[in-house]
Design a binder for these strands. Sequence first.
DNA 1: CTGTAATCGAGACGGTACGTCAGGTCTTACT
DNA 2: AGTAAGACCTGACGTACCGTCTCGATTACAG
Lengths: 203, 203, 203, 203
Amino acid sequence: MTTQRKSLSGTTRRNETSRRAILAAAFELVQEVGYAKLSIEGIAARAGVGKQTIYRWWPSKGAVLFDAFLMLSEQPDSGESALPDTGDLEADLKAVLRATIDELNDPRYDEPMRALNTEITHDPALAALYAERLDGPMRELKKQRLRSAQRAGQLAEDLDLDVAVDMLWGPLLNRWLQRNGALTAEYVDNIVETALNGLRPRH
Amino acid sequence: MTTQRKSLSGTTRRNETSRRAILAAAFELVQEVGYAKLSIEGIAARAGVGKQTIYRWWPSKGAVLFDAFLMLSEQPDSGESALPDTGDLEADLKAVLRATIDELNDPRYDEPMRALNTEITHDPALAALYAERLDGPMRELKKQRLRSAQRAGQLAEDLDLDVAVDMLWGPLLNRWLQRNGALTAEYVDNIVETALNGLRPRH
Amino acid sequence: MTTQRKSLSGTTRRNETSRRAILAAAFELVQEVGYAKLSIEGIAARAGVGKQTIYRWWPSKGAVLFDAFLMLSEQPDSGESALPDTGDLEADLKAVLRATIDELNDPRYDEPMRALNTEITHDPALAALYAERLDGPMRELKKQRLRSAQRAGQLAEDLDLDVAVDMLWGPLLNRWLQRNGALTAEYVDNIVETALNGLRPRH
Amino acid sequence: MTTQRKSLSGTTRRNETSRRAILAAAFELVQEVGYAKLSIEGIAARAGVGKQTIYRWWPSKGAVLFDAFLMLSEQPDSGESALPDTGDLEADLKAVLRATIDELNDPRYDEPMRALNTEITHDPALAALYAERLDGPMRELKKQRLRSAQRAGQLAEDLDLDVAVDMLWGPLLNRWLQRNGALTAEYVDNIVETALNGLRPRH
DNA sequence: CTGTAATCGAGACGGTACGTCAGGTCTTACT
DNA sequence: AGTAAGACCTGACGTACCGTCTCGATTACAG
């Protein structure tokens, strides 16, 4: 994957055009034919590239797919530096989670993201990379917003922010991956409210 | 899969011995070689069965795996009729969730369950079957326990029990699938406490 | 094959209807799909018969085909008791050989007869049966006609009639099997004349 | 088959070692297991080659077998430039025909040649190729010898040499293919003498 | 400004597994 | 007991991809 680039010298002979074509082809193909039928051979053909060029730079099908996501996330427009912070935590969280489910429900991203999750679940190395490059930065933004609320006294002082993130996003992702229920705005709102207030009765 | 059996007449010529051998072989193999290298050919060989016998009764590798889980869950000893109900909701939930992570951490079940999740995520039909046969009954038990607590005034009156279940188990499953963190007893306890009390400060 | 019938007791339970249906189906199928794609399964399906019924009575695909030919040859109309004998040997031979090539050129018989020859060439047991039941009787008729001519002084006294038959029919059959040349009336006439007169110049 | 080779450019990437191994394996296997049980899979295994390498270059089992014969016939030692011509036609023909039956009776060639004949009889395309590459050149040699005799006045002036060749070799091949009689020197001699003199009495 | 060495597209290669077809045996239920 | 039906184990079919390997043809660096 990308990290294989001989970054020290900075003088790799690598063909950037081919690299982009491969990642684009992988992303398109996984949408069209699904994860199970995605093949290196298919990617190479679609990208107009020799198979060896793929094997030279990526160790596995999953690594290509991963890099394809990395490329997407590095596009300037998606460089979200922070989550919205209007002061109204509940509203902000609902807005962010709704954006999340919009993405998960988008047919363009559905298959590719499922494929990525599949690769991660079966490949610890890829999972580590995912945690470092994609999930980690995103989680940091989420925790930032929660920390801000915590400082404002809107969240419990002893709250473990990682647990909080898991409790907000975990149910969503799980429902999406296991397909046991639609991802609707109502569901999201319900999750946010219930998470904030807790299962126990207040008072 | 199982539902293909001509159950009405009850007179299929199906060989029950072969069926069991296939399901057992599938379950064992997915542990040994992993999901990616699990093959119908391998299952047939291990089960001492012709490939056609598999293709005759199951539409896909995933369907076989699914039936293997079904067979496990139908074993008399695993006929869990109810979750523990000592009156102490928090303790009961912690106990149950710890049992869950013990299973997820068990190397015998790790790979097979990841494989099952992978199949479900990529096959809506299988997902529906999973919801009906495996996840559904289990979720019902969980909701029963919560309902009991709700009646006892330990849970909010207007609480959506499905959301509650998602909020307790979702974080776990997600952490397990995405491999972003160890599934420890501390984590589980933290989840239970935080879910019950909510993210907001109490008073 | 037919000889398996328990002829002594005369009280086989064998179903004559099925037998006929199988032979007919075999003969038809070999025309339609060719020898290579002729299958027991196909014959059984076409004949509306269980596979076991075929395996019970015939040892091989070739044996079925052979019996199909036997059935044809035993039809009353084809019970030719003798070859034409007008006194004009050359004319009679030409007439008979032309009838032979008409049969070989007939699309209804072409594939089945090639199939039969293939089976014979690869199965000595079948070849023996063929010699006894089909080729033998026919060859006897041919030799009868030649013997008649020999007595009339039209053929050499020391002529080996088997060799004579081979020399008249062999070239034809060989050209047909190896497909190296069309089987025309001219060719047949040429063979007859050349065989009768010999390759050497007369006088 | 061979003719598929892109001979013009001369730059096929074809692996000559594999090609030879395949042809040799096919020839050996057909001897050992017989034509009916000859399989592409078996050839590939014996040759230490992937199945695709066979399917890439040959359209059928028969085509492989055919090329195997072609390879044999192209070996320098078998480059028979002419048939013996001692002036004694009868003796020369007997010698040549005896050599022919020696080959047909040779267990190393028996099965392979029957297999080749089977393929030819069921595949016109292969038959054409056979006529052009193997049978044609051989037939030309035979006709050369006969033409020489014809010029010497030993054969009828108006004799059709193709018919003559058929009449000499046809009976042999037919007897061999149909297995109705042993191929002995006596039989061969009888054929030659009878063919030369004709069936009719000489004076 | 010209080797020269890495990269590229292409695709052959030895393999593994696919999903299908048929072989020959066996079992079941009907006649 | 014979039969139609069809499940079963086996093994071959012909195809798709795997990951490795060569083959010229670019191509960009270094001398």
